[in-house]
Simulated scan of single mutants.
Amino acid sequence: MSLFWRIFSLNAAVLTVAALVLLFAPVTVSATARLAEALIILAGTAVTLVANAVMLRVGLSPLARLTRVMTTIDLLRPGTRLVARGQGEIAQLITAFNAMLDRLETERASSAGRALSAQEAERHRIAQELHDEIGQTLTAVLLDLKRVAKASPDPVRDQLLQVQESTRNSLDEIRRIARRLRPGVLDELGLASALRALAGEFTTAGLAVRRQVHSDLPVLPKEVELVLYRVAQESLTNAARHSAAQHVDLVLSEQNDGGVRLCVRDDGRGLRGAPEGAGIRGMRERALLIGADLSVESGVTGGTSVQLSVPA
């Protein structure tokens, strides 16, 4: 039973018992109550109960609002706060809840930032090892195969050439994985070139990516460029794997307030009410690190639209 009904039931029981005692107790002030007096007392009791219910409902409504917010709060969508309405302890409780949300969001952003920084450092290390260790080893294997194939008879040479081609394909795949783990073009040539290379990579994989990067973009910090690149990468990956899309529009433009907006829109089957997976939640955590606003929703005519708005 809710707090409202517990208090109301207790008050109703007390008032009802008091009314019955006044009506039927053998001890009265002057005489036994007549029918009209009994009706007046019952009507007064009913009015008192209604007034008590209204007062309790108004007084406890901030608690009901607080309960609704507590059950729907999501730290990946910050900014939800309650106005400290009510009297006494209720207003103090709402104020304390808002302060707790401030601390949780700050700690969440700080811990997510440390985790993502460690993740990027680990990706960089793995990509470096793939490029320096495995890449160089496979390159040496290719040179050895080429040398051995020249000195081999024709039947063996054909087989060695097939092995050489398979090894070359494996080397290209390792380089592609290393680029996705740590896009060197982002550090060397900037965000526009990195998005161009990313769009070309997914286009060669069978997805038609139409890219539009405005030339008058403001200068962005490295961490902002990395978040924009990772959100675009995850959005294109989701479009290629899950949406059955054929065309994707990738647009990076400047906003009126001096910030930038990244929009990735596909023509797939949309979200269809599916819960957010680890990829989308990862994008939300990255957006929190730079104070950006991320929205993921189904388009009006189908497909999925991912928009990341980075303030100036």
Score class of each variant (00 low, 15 high):
G79A: 01
G79S: 03
G79H: 01
G79T: 02
T80R: 06
T80Y: 00
L82K: 05
L82W: 04
L82N: 01
L82F: 01
V83C: 01
V83S: 02
V83N: 02
A84C: 04
A84N: 05
A84G: 00
A84F: 01
R85T: 10
R85N: 03
R85G: 04
G86T: 01
G86E: 02
G86R: 00
Q87M: 09
Q87Y: 09
G88Y: 03
G88N: 03
G88W: 02
G88I: 04
E89G: 00
E89H: 03
A91M: 00
A91V: 05
A91Y: 01
A91T: 09
Q92V: 08
Q92Y: 00
Q92F: 01
L93N: 00
L93S: 05
L93F: 01
I94N: 02
I94G: 01
T95F: 00
T95D: 10
T95A: 09
A96E: 02
A96F: 00
F97P: 03
F97M: 06
N98F: 00
M100T: 13
L101R: 08
L101M: 10
L101K: 04
L101H: 07
D102H: 07
L104S: 14
E105D: 14
E105M: 02
E105C: 06
E107K: 08
E107L: 12
E107T: 14
S110I: 12
S111E: 14
S111C: 12
S111K: 11
S111W: 11
A112E: 14
A112Q: 12
G113F: 03
G113H: 07
G113C: 03
R114K: 15
A115D: 13
L116H: 09
L116K: 08
A118Q: 15
A118H: 13
A121S: 13
A121E: 14
A121Q: 13
A121L: 12
A121Y: 08
E122H: 12
R123D: 10
R123E: 06
H124Y: 08
R125M: 05
I126K: 05
A127C: 02
A127H: 04
Q128I: 06
Q128D: 13
Q128E: 15
E129G: 05
E129N: 07
E129Y: 04
L130W: 00
L130C: 02
H131N: 12
E133K: 10
E133H: 09
G135Y: 03
G135V: 05
G135I: 04
G135P: 00
Q136T: 15
Q136I: 08
Q136C: 08
T137W: 11
T137I: 12
T137C: 06
T137Y: 07
L138Q: 09
T139C: 04
T139D: 13
T139Q: 12
A140W: 07
A140P: 03
V141Q: 12
V141T: 15
V141G: 07
L142P: 02
L142S: 12
L142F: 06
L143A: 15
L143W: 06
L143D: 14
D144C: 06
D144F: 08
D144S: 15
L145M: 11
K146Y: 07
K146R: 13
K146C: 07
K146V: 04
R147D: 14
R147W: 06
A149Y: 03
K150H: 10
S152A: 15
